[in-house]
Amino acid sequence: MASQGTKRSYEQMETDGERQNATEIRASVGKMIDGIGRFYIQMCTELKLSDYEGRLIQNSLTIERMVLSAFDERRNKYLEEHPSAGKDPKKTGGPIYKRVDRKWMRELVLYDKEEIRRIWRQANNGDDATAGLTHMMIWHSNLNDTTYQRTRALVRTGMDPRMCSLMQGSTLPRRSGAAGAAVKGVGTMVMELIRMIKRGINDRNFWRGENGRKTRSAYERMCNILKGKFQTAAQRAMMDQVRESRNPGNAEIEDLIFLARSALILRGSVAHKSCLPACVYGPAVASGYDFEKEGYSLVGIDPFKLLQNSQVYSLIRPNENPAHKSQLVWMACNSAAFEDLRVLSFIRGTKVSPRGKLSTRGVQIASNENMDAMESSTLELRSRYWAIRTRSGGNTNQQRASAGQISVQPAFSVQRNLPFDKPTIMAAFTGNTEGRTSDMRAEIIRMMEGAKPEEMSFQGRGVFELSDERAANPIVPSFDMSNEGSYFFGDNAEEYDN
């Protein structure tokens, strides 16, 4: 993207840094990872977990959730003011799984939030270390993106479920800051804005008074975040219109849905970061690795190297396929839920299948599930090659597409044709070009129609051997075009429920 120079890199967003050079960025990201790792080690000690239990991804998720809940100030305040039966607002906890007599047992633990905050700050040299908290939120978000298709949420806001490739980060909490905003897809931002506008339509006082002023500035800020994701002048001009509207209503909703559809071809720039579970960072720190000293990046080879040398386990339900569970977590670790499966298959070195073909449910185990038949197995999170994460949407291309997802959002900077089903997408653009945004709409449609099938995206960008740390010898991959490109292809993934 041309304006790259004016933006802070995501590592800076990730670490609240002012302008830093590459070495400083690597050190501050490393410091953040160190903090998460030290916190995780301490929690495993508190909970008396064995090494194996500490490497269980379900335990990692519970521990991450506990610290996120302990620092969720708004919710904590709300819980104190609106006490609900049987919930102690000062405590947080969740299921911890232990191996007892050759069987997995679930144990519900409860801790004072104050105590968890103390352990977290102690692991982070006394700081609140917001960057580390956001990092864990993005890992949870990436896992949700890989596990669930947001059909219901899309339909509720009037969008087409086939636009799911635009929904990265749709389950990120509001408090995820600049680093969170960077990884949100165009569809996620559109959905947040539509929800806001709908509230304004239904509630006369939404934009009024002292609160209304705050609401208005939040609305304009979200519009600017979305505008910054678009790469064409016409899309940005249309966002200006939406932002400046005196009284946002149905016309703005129409414009936003139009823009979301246009992003299936004229893709937005959305950041991709490899955020790993805390149970990967903990053992690495415990083994003596100093992330701050060595430096770390979320968008280069580092996460690949770390996963190459990590042992992570997962509980497996009786009829689940461990290899499929591994694929789910591998995609989440690489922030690749909406990437082209052919690119992923090449990088991973084994075939990556669409969601609907995987015999696996989510990673988390519900409290009512029976533990008797639970097994555990090693997650295979290694890769054959590594590639640089991208934040450009890439230019655009036609490809055989599917009944489910009709476009992709690249996660890796790797040369390819970008699949999208042009006739299906263009069919949504018939007729409606009147109104105050008509010239911009016409211009956007013209650009979409001009998108050429034979153009290559990320020209000359390749993948790298894991021994090639400096990215000196790019390998331009070859793809098996007979395979499906979309992950949520004609899909039956479970729906995400809060």
Rank of each mutant, 00 (worst) to 15 (best):
A271I: 04
R55Y: 08
S482K: 06
K91C: 06
A181P: 00
L133G: 03
R118S: 04
Q58G: 06
E339K: 13
S310C: 15
G485D: 00
E380G: 12
N498W: 00
Q459E: 11
N368I: 11
D340Y: 09
F458N: 06
N59H: 12
N247C: 15
M448K: 12
Y281N: 10
Q4L: 14
Y385T: 06
L172K: 09
E114Y: 12
A336K: 00
E469F: 00
G187T: 04
T378D: 02
L307V: 07
M456T: 04
D468C: 14
K103C: 12
N124F: 10
Y219N: 10
S3G: 03
E244D: 15
Q235C: 15
R470Y: 00
R195A: 04
Y487M: 05
F206D: 01
R204D: 07
N309S: 14
R65H: 05
S482I: 12
C279I: 08
G295D: 13
N142P: 10
N309H: 13
V270G: 08
I301V: 13
E494I: 10
F412Q: 01
G94F: 06
E449V: 11
E46R: 11
S376V: 15
S69I: 06
Q399K: 15
R208Y: 05
K422I: 01
M374Q: 11
T157P: 00
G177K: 03
H135P: 08
L266C: 09
I265M: 15
R391D: 02
M163C: 14
Q398W: 03
R156N: 02
A179V: 10
A263G: 14
E18P: 13
Y296P: 10
R162P: 10
G126T: 13
Q122P: 03
T396S: 13
L264G: 06
G404S: 15
R216H: 12
Y52M: 13
S50A: 15
E469D: 12
G490C: 02
A70N: 04
P173C: 05
V299Y: 02
N250L: 07
N370S: 10
Y97S: 06
R152G: 06
G300F: 09
I33E: 08
F346R: 04
G228A: 13
T157D: 03
R446P: 13
W386G: 08
Y111A: 01
I138V: 11
A131L: 01
E434M: 08
R118F: 06
A427E: 00
T146E: 04
M440D: 12
Q308I: 15
M331Y: 08
E454W: 04
N483W: 00
A451Y: 15
C279D: 08
K357E: 13
G349Y: 06
A237N: 04
A182E: 04
V183F: 09
M239T: 14
Y111F: 15
N368E: 14
S407Y: 05
G490F: 02
F71E: 05
M447Q: 14
G132Y: 07
G431C: 10
G93S: 09
A471I: 01
A251L: 15
V155H: 02
F71C: 05
Q311T: 15
T215D: 07
E455T: 14
Q20L: 05
W330F: 08
S326F: 10
R384K: 15
T45Y: 02
R267E: 07
Q241R: 06
N124G: 12
F338A: 13
